[in-house]
Design a protein around this nucleic acid. Structure first.
Lengths: 223, 223
DNA sequence: TCATTGCAGTTTGTATACAGTGTGCGAATT
DNA sequence: AATTCGCACACTGTATACAAACTGCAATGA
């Protein structure tokens, strides 16, 4: 969370993007030496970056065998999304109370920017950022930084799968509509309905991912 | 979470204990060189340990100025305890459904061991471990590993303050009684009452800590 | 007197170097 | 032919070494 950029942090940020972007499938070994050559740094900042990613749950260390990208089971994905429902409805409820015009405008601006990017054929990397930015903007007025940090953690862990779903299904438009709905309910101050919508928003994404994963599992069985 | 022990992990574990034990007050600088000499290792594992502790929220890095122990504001403490209520009642509810005799016995055993340690004048370090072990035993049957991990995070962040409260007030006996009550309600399968008790158990601890901190703030003002 | 600049000392962040441990392949044995 | 042993290689984990950056103090100037 430090505001400055060490080499280690640069590597961590870039590597996170590569993992979330799907460049490394689950369980692949990340060799420190190779990564060090990739980024033209020594292995020390690479190790530190890997440790950071370990704490984020994207990577696991094994004794004297180094770091491997993690892969989530369907059960864990379900658990993560259930947690997201629990925590995000919790903050949304808190946020809606103290929502100002400025907050609504900010969230609306992000949403509009995102609409534009979408219409002009924006790609997935941007989508993740916009999606996260919108949710954060909506949650920020709750002034619960620790909670937001937890939510951010959960998102990081599941982001790979969300992107996967977006690539293979056409869920983006639907998510977009739900975002507009969410913003409208927030504007009206209807916390119950907003939370209900948020809940189904998250749960449907989860089910989409699970369906996709199980279909894949079947395919690799028969092949 | 790797199961093996590198020097870095040893340092991290020990240092965590020292921070939580109150050896370093909030905001004190942790010099890598000094720690390296302390543990008779080079600065590399020390740095890695500090990075681990940073991800746990016990330490903060500042640009070219190294690591400092963090200090929580009253608002953040309240937020953390509110989160604990939310997450712990959530898992307790799930756990109570699938609770077996073996689970109850395990939790009971821990509680008994803890009673013994308490009667023979056990100290605070042990208390933290026992307390955590008891809660984990009670929550484990929920089979929600990610959730338990989040709860564990929250506990780590607030553990310093819990210990402080226990040192300065005589809350241990009360907590102990509540633990027994919790176990009994779990045995009866009364999720509602158990969650209610857990909620007040956590909230009262929070209020105790906040009262203590505010008293201290007043004292340092007048002095 | 107070602010500003420059320098020395200290500490971090990283590169290089090295020792220990796991891995995989081939030889030897049954 | 299959299994076990051993050796060479590869990679990790850590120590040492070095450069950049920050801190604090002293000297200078207004």
């Amino acid at each position: 969370m430090a505001t400055y950029k060490t080499r280690a942090q640069f590597v961590a940020d870039d590597l996170r993007g590569r993992i979330l972007g799907g460049e490394f499938k689950g369980g692949t070994q990340l060799r420190q030496d190779a990564l060090a050559r990739d980024y033209d740094v020594s292995r020390i900042p690479v190790r530190e970056a890997l440790l950071t990613l370990e704490s984020e749950g994207l990577v696991e260390f094994h004794a004297h065998r180094g770091a491997f990208t993690t892969e989530l089971s369907v059960a864990k994905i379900r658990e993560l999304f259930d947690l997201r429902v629990l925590l995000e409805t919790y903050v949304l409820r808190h946020a809606i109370n103290g929502l100002t015009e400025a907050d609504l405008k900010k969230a609306g601006d992000i949403l509009r920017k995102y609409d534009q990017a979408l219409n002009s054929g924006g790609d997935i990397d941007n989508w993740s950022e916009y999606n996260f930015a919108f949710h954060q903007a909506l949650y920020a007025p709750a002034e619960l930084p620790e909670t937001l940090s937890l939510i951010s953690q959960l998102n990081t862990k599941s982001d790979r799968y969300i992107r996967m779903q977006l690539v293979y299904t056409q869920e983006i438009e639907k998510a977009e509509q739900e975002h507009h709905g969410l913003l409208e309910l927030a504007r009206q101050g209807d916390a119950d309905k907003a939370c209900e919508l948020l809940k189904t928003h998250i749960q449907e994404a989860c089910e989409g991912i699970v369906a996709l994963l199980e279909e894949r599992a079947k395919q690799s069985e028969t092949s």
